[in-house]
Design a protein around this nucleic acid. Structure first.
Lengths: 162, 162
DNA sequence: TGACTTTACATATACTGTTATATATCATAT
DNA sequence: ATATGATATATAACAGTATATGTAAAGTCA
């Protein structure tokens, strides 16, 4: 069966990037599940942003992550429930709500940085390592590579079963 | 403000691809709105699949588009409501539901193929034309290019305002 | 000071995708 | 013919994102 998205080339590039991105996230989810913390793979960029940049108000988190503000509000609520982040009002400006990692949140980020993220980064980097040339060719190679072995299996192979 | 997703490189490649894909779809949406038909940009791949491959059952549409079957079922329902596609039972196998373009659906696809798709494809192709080298660099160039001029503006510049 | 605008965030709704499960039809074996 | 298993699709529940809109705080200017 023809892969229509692929055949359509640049016309469907948006759908194709989204599809690959979703597959990468789903693969990564299976790796992160090992930490058995109730956090979706898509929430980690927010934690990483707080780790890199320190406490931030909602709006600046939206900027840093390139997603819309309502998405941040909801993610923060999801992460606050298990106590990974906490929110406090700014002193200067009572409208701003500053998001920061809790002690548990910091512990999770540190564990992820030490035990999981390097493996994921390496697996994805290897997947893309030999690629060169036109974008569409590289995307096809990634799709083919993921079909052969998804990210979670590449990570497992690299670091040994956990 | 630092773009954390971009800084994290391969670790967040999934989030990044998804983000770029969604932006491309949103830009494209604004171009397609000229046809003023109640169809989301993300539905066009399904219409294009029916155009390329002819009437197809739900399961084969899922394969052709690389998304899960329930997604197809719902998209078909959405497209059937404004009368762009119709569904009939297979003669051989009463379980299979064959999706096909209606007369209006075909008219829409033909108009899109003639008036809109070529401009979009060219705009995206130009955006990606000069790219070469590592994937992350190409993605950064695409993001920068879209920030300078989104797809819908590139299309408008190319073909003149409609 | 009081009215208007802007900013920061929350909430509501819609769209798309997923997995899990239910239902209907087909194929097959007794 | 009928029970059993496989297959095709629908439905439900859940997660993520987007836009639109509401609310409250801050800023601006007569």
């Amino acid at each position: 069966m023809e892969d229509v998205i692929r055949s359509l080339g640049f016309l469907c590039l948006g759908s194709r990037l989204k599809r690959i991105g979703e597959q990468l996230q789903a693969d990564t989810q299976r790796v992160l599940d090992r930490l058995d913390v109730p956090v979706q793979s898509s929430q980690y960029p927010l934690l990483a942003a707080l780790d890199r940049l320190g406490p931030l108000p909602v709006g600046e988190l939206a900027q840093a992550l390139g997603i819309a503000q309502p998405g941040i509000t909801r993610s923060v609520a999801l992460l606050a429930e298990p106590g990974l982040v906490e929110v406090s009002r700014s002193n200067n400006d009572q409208r701003r709500r500053i998001v920061s990692l809790t002690r548990n949140g910091r512990r999770l980020v540190d564990a992820a940085k030490r035990d999981v993220w390097p493996g994921i980064e390496k697996a994805v980097a290897d997947l893309c390592a030999d690629l060169s040339g036109p974008l569409l060719d590289q995307l096809a190679a990634i799709e083919d590579g993921l079909a052969v072995a998804p990210i979670d299996r590449r990570v497992r192979n690299a670091v040994g079963a956990v």
